[in-house]
Amino acid sequence: MGNDSLKDIAIKELLLHLADDDFIHSYRGAEWLGLAPHIEEDVASSSIAQDTMGHAAIYYKLLEEIGVGNADQLAHDRPAKERRNAIILEVVNGPGYYMKDPEYDWAFAVVRNYFYTQAKAIKLQSLHTSSYEPLAEVAQKVQMELYYHLMHWKMWFVQLLGSGHEEAVSRMKAAIEKTLQDFAGVFSLGQYGEEMVELGLIEGEADLQKKWIEAVSPIFESVGLATTFEIRMAKGDGRNGKHTEDLEKALETLSEVYASDKAASW
């Protein structure tokens, strides 16, 4: 890959952001299977996790098509330091493991899902006019499924915050604070961000973030929350390969069977 032009690198990096974000986000969603607040919601949110994994697969396929590697290998066989997902998406759902004592927090699930889905929708909107056509095409398709995801999580967000239930409201507020601590990582375009913008691949970080704030502000207001956002990247920038132990553990699980025989057909 030594001869890649800057443009090739920028395209590859952007596709990895998108693919890795959805891949790990879907994993965190899948960990909730069987554990949601009620059965009907379990079924409904599983569809969202599936769609999201489907989106990751589409992006990995685009990477495969430009010769970066096989889609399954890209999803399963890259160490944490090569991953490009935002750190907030790798953060565990709560203490415990999905198979043992999962002390998961639905408030964090709702907030992270709502915030991320809204950010994803804004990014996809921007990608509609991407100078990289294969991505522009894919963005239109993927966006179709986001209407449901967004409406679903927004509904939970509004209902829990608007419930007047003390514990619910305080849990939600804590989850908002926790998520915003690292949410700038979702907008980050990483070290090739300037090139991405110059090449017309996607809008800049500041624009994306501004649009996100515009989108969520009325929702915040509707439930009586202040709209002064302090969006940070406390744990570092996942786009540049900085990650936490949470991701390493997740990858171990995600690639357990794949890694048992990488050459085998499964």
Binding site: E40, V43, A44, S46, M151, Q159
Partner: peptide
């Protein structure tokens, strides 16, 4: 718990 959640569950269920 209410009709907004119900309608959000309906298609996927």
């Amino acid at each position: 718990p209410n009709e907004d959640i119900a309608i959000m569950m309906a298609q996927e269920n």
